[in-house]
Computed example of a mutant assay.
Amino acid sequence: MAQEPFEEVVETFEFLDDWEDRYRHVIDMGKAMDPLDDALKVPATKVDGCASQVWLHPKIEQGILTFDGESDAMIVRGLIAVLKALYSGLPVAEIGKVDAVAELGRLGLNEHLSAQRSNGVRAMVERLRQVAAAAA
């Protein structure tokens, strides 16, 4: 079972019947995030494997992962917000145990993202797992 912020996303998605509404909700989640400081948009924070430009800035404090992110694509920015709900606040030892494919599947994202977007999500998940594994 995912943590509470992600469960709230799942509940919202269950309430929204139409995929277009869900898509808009993901975009709105991204718009609600604070922008990433331009000084953090550097090669070290850029995620390779995404069709859009994506930056993730993970932080680990007292063994807990949090991160901020940004993308030049609205839907990808929203997907970063979804991943924040899934991962941010978890102990680094738990990050690798999260089945991102299954959890995101609960939202129906697997069927509604393009292959490029799905690859980008996988690249973001892999980056978070690498950071957590290095810190564990």
Rank of each mutant, 00 (worst) to 15 (best):
M33H: 07
A135E: 15
G89T: 04
I75M: 13
A115I: 14
A123Y: 12
L65D: 01
G69C: 01
E4K: 10
E11I: 06
L107C: 06
H112T: 05
R24H: 02
P58D: 02
R122H: 11
V131G: 02
A44P: 03
V98E: 00
E14M: 09
L86A: 03
H57R: 03
D72L: 12
V125W: 08
A115V: 15
M74D: 11
A133F: 09
A44I: 14
A44Q: 14
E103F: 09
W55R: 01
A102L: 10
F6V: 06
H57N: 10
L86G: 00
I60S: 01
K41D: 05
I75C: 03
M33T: 04
I95S: 02
D18M: 04
I80C: 04
V82H: 02
S118Y: 08
R77Y: 00
Q3H: 03
Q62L: 03
Q3F: 03
K31I: 03
A39F: 04
P58L: 07
A81Y: 07
Y87V: 11
K59I: 01
K97C: 00
F6L: 03
R24Q: 08
G78M: 11
Q3A: 02
D72N: 15
R24F: 01
E8L: 13
G120V: 10
T66D: 12
E4H: 07
S114L: 11
F13K: 05
R22E: 00
M33P: 00
E14G: 04
P91M: 15
M1D: 02
V26H: 06
G96K: 15
L36V: 12
A123Q: 13
L113W: 09
R22Y: 01
L128C: 00
G49Y: 14
M74Y: 07
G78V: 11
G89R: 09
I27E: 01
G78I: 11
A2E: 05
P5K: 10
G108K: 05
K46M: 13
L56G: 02
V42D: 00
L56F: 08
R77L: 12
M74N: 03
G96W: 14
G108Q: 08
V76F: 13
I27C: 05
G89V: 12
E70H: 10
W55Q: 00
L109A: 04
V54C: 06
A136T: 12
H112I: 08
Q62K: 06
A93V: 11
N119R: 15
L79V: 13
N119I: 13
R127V: 07
C50Y: 12
L90K: 15
E94A: 15
K97A: 14
E7L: 10
L16N: 06
I95D: 02
D48N: 08
I75Y: 07
A100N: 05
